[in-house]
């Protein structure tokens, strides 16, 4: 795929992605399969693009896919998850360069790889959940979680099924608009009989000393082993470090993404205006849905291959690109 400057999520010269066919396809897939993470949904979308592509040669196909990926990257919401999918897809393309002359066979191979990932995504998530339940969640632990994360909920339910006795504190994840997703987490955990407290984000500093560890999901894991995840994650990581609490991330390996943010504001979805000081009520509208947590704040990243330090994950990513 192209290594050109990442298309800014705020440029006005490009079409709004939700008005494009590929953008609408992504949204449709997400509606039809709400259990898929955004990365997987984007992979599925790009796989479909291959199926309907009218390209006659391999290089045309690559160009076509690059164009579709570039459009998808214009989505500001879950931007990094989409970039991860596009990265992964470009690896599929690169790995299938063997059969240059048989386009159909190549397309088959890539579609198969994409579908394989999508089909296995549920089991991948389950494997991570099982690992966390077995090795991380211990008897009498107080687990702090943030907002809503499918893999975290999965892990907690699994631990409950294994009859581990533990409690959960949920930071509701209020992002200034809409309902805080922590409520959905609370409902689901309580339905499984897990003792749960839902707290406003403001109470984090107050409760942190009662917590055993923090468990979060991931929108993406970046090149240095850092984390991009729902807005508020970094705040929790800061408090956790200050209180010497372990901070664990659960992330499928397809969420590894070739981005290297230098600062909080060095990701594609950053809006330089940052906050709207015009005084209107939508004052948080320029804030992104995600933030960046640098590696020193992360204790372990749990993947389907096991739990690694951010440094090990960074090593793995270097090996992946060579």
């Amino acid at each position: 795929m192209s290594s050109s400057t990442p298309p800014s999520a705020t440029t006005t010269s490009r079409p709004a992605p939700e008005t494009t066919p590929v953008g609408r396809a992504l949204q449709r897939i997400q509606r039809e399969h709400p259990n898929l993470s955004t990365t997987v949904a984007a992979i599925k979308t790009l796989t479909e693009c291959i199926q309907i592509s009218k390209a006659a040669t391999l290089s045309e196909l690559i160009k076509d896919l690059e164009a579709q990926a570039d459009i998808l990257k214009l989505f500001r919401h879950q931007n990094v998850a989409i970039v991860a999918a596009c990265d992964l897809f470009s690896r599929f393309l690169r790995d299938s360069h063997h059969d240059v002359f048989n386009l159909d066979a190549t397309k088959e191979r890539i579609i198969a790889a994409g579908n394989d990932l999508v089909d296995k995504s549920d089991e991948t998530r389950a494997a991570i959940a099982r690992h966390a339940a077995k090795h991380i969640i211990q008897e009498d632990d107080v687990v702090l979680v943030h907002s809503y994360s499918r893999v975290v909920v999965r892990a907690l339910i699994h631990a409950r099924r294994e009859n581990t006795r533990f409690k959960v504190i949920i930071c509701e994840g209020h992002a200034g608009r809409g309902r805080a997703l922590g409520h959905a987490t609370a409902a689901e955990l309580r339905a499984h009989g897990i003792p749960t407290a839902l707290i406003p984000d403001t109470a984090l500093g107050y409760v942190i000393d009662t917590v055993s560890f923090i468990l979060v999901g991931a929108e993406g894991v970046v090149q240095n082993g850092g984390l991009v995840n729902g807005l508020g994650t970094f705040t929790i990581a800061l408090v956790a470090k200050s209180a010497s609490k372990p901070f664990y991330v659960m992330a499928e390996s397809y969420k590894f993404v070739k981005l290297f943010p230098l600062t909080q504001y060095d990701l594609p979805f950053h809006d330089p205006a940052l906050i709207d000081v015009s005084g209107s009520d939508a004052s948080s509208s320029r804030l992104p849905g995600a933030d960046y947590t640098p590696p020193p704040f992360i204790t372990l990243i749990v993947t389907e291959y096991g739990a690694f330090s951010p440094g090990r994950v960074a090593d793995v990513m270097i090996a992946m690109t060579h």
């Binding site: 090149q223 082993g225 590696p295 951010p310 960074a314 090593d315 090996a319």
Partner: peptide
């Protein structure tokens, strides 16, 4: 150090030895 850049690309300092081996 936040980032090391060589012709191999972006390298977090903790990965320097691995890159050297490669």
């Amino acid at each position: 150090v936040t980032l090391i850049i060589s012709e191999s690309g972006f390298i977090p300092p903790s990965s320097a030895y691995m890159v050297f081996k490669e």
